[in-house]
Design a protein around this nucleic acid. Structure first.
Length: 805
RNA sequence: GGGCCUGUGGUCUAGUUGGUUAGGACGUCGCCCUCACACGGCGAAGAUCCCCGGUUCAAAUCCGGGCGGGCCCACCA
């Protein structure tokens, strides 16, 4: 039987071990059940401990996994880690105080790998297992695994074969700090105030013009000057030459409709490259190329005496020198937003470099169509995906000039420079270690290895293929692809979701998953994001320490996919109370069901029909909620039903039948026991995905001996049972509850104890007849009758009362 | 500048296929230790449902406009 108090910690520990030992959450490859597969977001394990937002994010869809498992699915739930790419690299750099200029690539990678393994162990034990997550650990993968590298490289080879991969030298988004190319998706906005300088350029003769620029340091790269074709002020300038101050070279003045005559002076200088507009003008007007910025963010020899200085420094000096020449006429502050590296906030530069690309612009329409085949939860995020796709301006640059990551499986012929790709049977390869097979098409057999690695999304975008063992188990993969769902956060729709949809389309012409559910974003109690810099982070381990796993999960259960949730500690207190209540109500219920064997009784009393019918309704609605990722809504419904319908009303009404069984017929007592058993077990099951430990504890302590399943988490989800629907009983029961509430109110207003018996009660309604005895016993009424009543205790019914003195 | 989401008692929110006495939780106040639970029960106070207009017999809910908050994207040389 259930003890007086529930020991959260002991219980949680015990059942986590039990689940692991019994392999309760194993995916069964031989099962005939339909598969429900989840494309889990591989977390970076680099953070030693995680904040409550991560815990919520991962637990939120874990609840779905448990729901589906109970609903008869063979759940494919593979844990994973992302130990690939910049975050790991950055972490190791910081932790060991090294950088790629002083360490060899090989050593550095080894260090990264070792560090990842260590942190992952801590992470999986403390976080995933600690939160009671139901992964099948035998399906674990990490993004740097040979198998993941293989999938990543295979993707590259396959797309090359299909003609979707190309290499070219083009202006690329470049981070001067990390010294690598970046994808459009890796660029973030950086709002800042900058200075707009008005600088005088000399023309032929004695004329001068004034140009406004925020980037005077790019003067050495100035290749042209533009004015708007309809700008009366400057029409006569077109075709003339201007002399670039300090650097002295001459550039032509041209016209283009894209110039905004109202900005600055209405004259713009084009430098290769200050921004995307420069690139466009450079392309359309076939301007010369002058690069003055180096890959590490300094000026090069083109800048003459400023060469070697970094951009901000050079800018100051150049402006200084211009001022000395009297060429700066105005300086004004300008609010601007520039693209910056998402990791280090360094404003990006546009540098022409040789990079590998995957074609995306050609498939915009198809990708939008693919997006429409997927069910988005909530729906409106589909729009965000479509907007992003529609507005894409660059093909996907997949090469990165980094140390750590999946190598690009390519060598270049020393003689003709042609790329030679690895063969499918040989991957994964590391071109710097492995040698290519055979000769180049040109007959030469010496090669230079590719040193770049893939963008981390190259691998992440293959997470469904990796998780489902595309290359290892092609037949299973074929049968099980697309996956059932992808949970993820909204900020990476343009990256993870987009690239994954792209890849599934380019490789298989399929969608990667049927559903995509956008997770909840946790805010602090004031509705602001949690950031280290703001000092408002709430750590998961602190909450687990202070409360318990189920309490934290209960809080997670209040969230609904796609909706933000402000963190309020009181919600955890509420959870704690709820679980205590659940324990106590179960203890009471089960202490009255000692030795009971579930058996459908001959007849059910009206009030039992009432709650069973309502339960049935609850099951139906809750199931639908879970199916549509509305966990918050499901949990609220169950909670309301449990606390109010079951505890406050039903249990109070049923007490007399349990305490004084001799004053009832046998079937009436049987009916009560049957109802209690069924309702409580159903409630536990409906709550099991959210609070798995306490429900398991109660299940094991009592129900296990009568039920087939060895864990509540693999038991059958409650089913809608049409034979229990009884609208009339629902109505009559509601009336009984109303009447009882009215009498309670009367007692409360008159400061009478609820235990105080009432001598006479007359109720002015025939409808209460089937529940008259329930009302009488619940309210301790000595004489109750239906008839004309003078009182007005209830708003709905007239009730006359006489208190015993 | 474009797109999307959002605005309900002190706080967090449910309800938005139009019709409810606008529901709940936390907080406040009063009463009640009724043999599961005082980490409980019962009850009370507290809401111009952001504002203005429109559609309608009827709007928190639909439409238009405005204001506020949030997110995503684009951007100014």
């Amino acid at each position: 039987m259930l003890k007086k108090t529930y020991d959260f910690r002991k219980s949680e520990n015990k059942w986590q071990k039990f689940w692991e030992r019994e392999r309760i959450f194993r995916f069964d490859p031989k099962s005939k059940k339909p598969v429900f597969s989840i494309d889990v977001p591989p977390p970076y394990a680099s953070a030693g401990h995680l904040h409550i937002g991560h815990a919520l994010h991962y637990t939120q869809f874990e609840i779905i996994a448990r729901f589906r498992r109970m609903s008869g699915f063979n759940v494919y739930f593979a844990p994973c880690f992302d130990n690939n790419g910049l975050p790991t690299e950055k972490y190791v750099e910081e932790k060991f105080g090294i950088d790629k200029t002083t360490t060899t690539k090989h050593e550095f990678r080894k260090l990264c790998l070792k560090e990842s393994k260590r942190v992952e162990k801590v992470y999986s034990d403390n976080v995933f297992k600690g939160l009671g997550h139901s992964y099948d650990w035998s399906l674990l993968y990490t993004t740097i695994d040979p198998e993941s590298q293989k999938v990543s490289q295979m993707s590259f080879l396959d797309l090359w074969k299909k003609g979707f991969v190309y290499r070219s030298e083009e202006p690329t988004l470049w981070c001067t700090k990390h010294q690598t190319a970046l994808a459009q998706a890796e660029i973030e906005d950086l709002k800042r105030t900058t200075v707009l300088d008005h600088i005088i350029f000399d023309l032929e003769g004695k004329k001068r013009i004034e140009i406004a620029t925020t980037r005077p340091e790019l003067l050495p790269a100035c290749v042209a000057i533009f004015v708007h074709p309809e700008d009366e002020r400057y029409r006569n300038l077109v075709g003339k030459k201007a002399k670039v101050p300090i650097f002295g070279h001459e550039v032509e003045i041209m016209e283009d409709k894209k110039v905004d005559p109202d900005f600055g002076t209405g004259i713009v200088m084009v430098c290769t490259f200050g921004d995307t507009a420069d690139i466009e003008w450079w392309k359309t007007h076939k301007l010369p190329l002058k690069i003055c910025v180096t890959k590490d963010g300094k000026l090069n020899e083109l800048a003459g005496k400023y060469a070697g200085k970094d951009l901000t420094e050079a800018r100051k000096e150049i402006i200084n020198d211009l001022e000395k020449e009297g060429r700066v006429t105005r300086k004004e502050n300008l609010e601007q937003t520039v693209g910056a590296c998402w990791r280090c906030q360094t404003p990006i530069e546009f540098l022409p470099t040789k990079q590998w690309f995957i074609k995306t612009l050609d498939f915009k329409k198809e990708l939008i169509k693919q997006g429409r085949k997927i069910r988005w939860f909530p729906k409106f995020y589909q729009k965000r995906y479509e907007d992003w796709t529609r507005n894409l301006a660059w093909d996907w640059c997949i090469s990165r000039q980094r140390f750590y990551g999946v190598p690009i499986p390519v060598w270049y012929c020393k003689k003709c420079g042609k790329p030679k790709l690895a063969e499918e049977k040989d991957i994964p390869v590391d071109p710097e270690v492995d040698r290519p097979k055979g000769k180049c098409e040109c007959g030469f057999s010496e090669f230079i290895p590719e040193e770049d690695v893939f963008d981390t999304w190259m691998t992440s975008s293959m997470s469904p293929e990796i998780a489902m063992r595309w290359l290892e188990k092609p037949r299973d993969f074929e049968n099980r692809f697309p996956m059932s769902m992808r949970p993820q956060s909204h900020d990476i729709i343009r990256t993870w979701a987009f690239y994954t949809i792209l890849k599934a389309y380019l490789h298989f012409r399929k969608i990667p998953w049927k559903d995509i559910a956008i997770g909840t974003y946790v805010l602090d109690s004031k509705g602001r994001g949690m950031h280290k810099s703001k000092g408002n982070i709430v750590w998961t381990e602190d909450l687990l320490e202070k409360y318990s796993v189920d309490v934290v999960r209960y809080w997670v259960g209040t969230a609904t996919f796609g909706e933000d949730l402000p963190y309020q500690e009181k919600d955890l207190v509420t959870g704690q109370r709820f679980l205590t209540k659940l324990w106590n109500a179960s203890r009471f219920t089960l202490s009255n069901l000692k030795g009971y064997r579930p058996k459908k009784p001959r007849k059910l009393t009206e009030i039992d029909k009432w709650i069973l019918s309502k339960l049935n309704d609850l099951v139906k609605k809750t199931t639908k909620d879970f199916e549509e990722y509305m966990t918050g809504s499901a949990k609220t419904k169950v909670e309301q039903f449990f606390w109010h319908t079951f505890c406050d009303h039903y249990l109070e009404i049923v007490k007399d039948r349990l305490y004084n069984q001799s004053s009832y017929e046998k079937w009436e007592a049987d009916s009560a026991k049957f109802t209690l058993y069924r309702v409580l077990l159903s409630i536990l099951k409906l709550l099991a995905p959210v609070t798995p430990h306490v429900t398991e504890e109660i299940y094991q302590l009592y129900f296990r001996k009568n039920e087939r399943s060895k864990s509540i988490h693999v038991s059958d989800w409650p089913r809608f049972d049409s034979s229990l629907v009884d609208r009339n009983a629902e109505k009559v029961g509601d009336i009984a509850v109303d009447v009882i509430a009215s009498i309670r109110k009367f007692k409360s207003e008159n400061s009478i104890s609820l235990a105080e018996p009432l001598r006479y009660v007359t109720i002015d309604s025939n409808r209460v007849k089937p529940v008259l005895k329930d009302i009488q016993k619940t309210m301790r009424i000595e004489n109750i009758r239906i008839g004309r009543a003078k009182g007005k205790v209830s708003e709905i019914f007239k009730i006359e009362l006489e208190i015993r003195k």
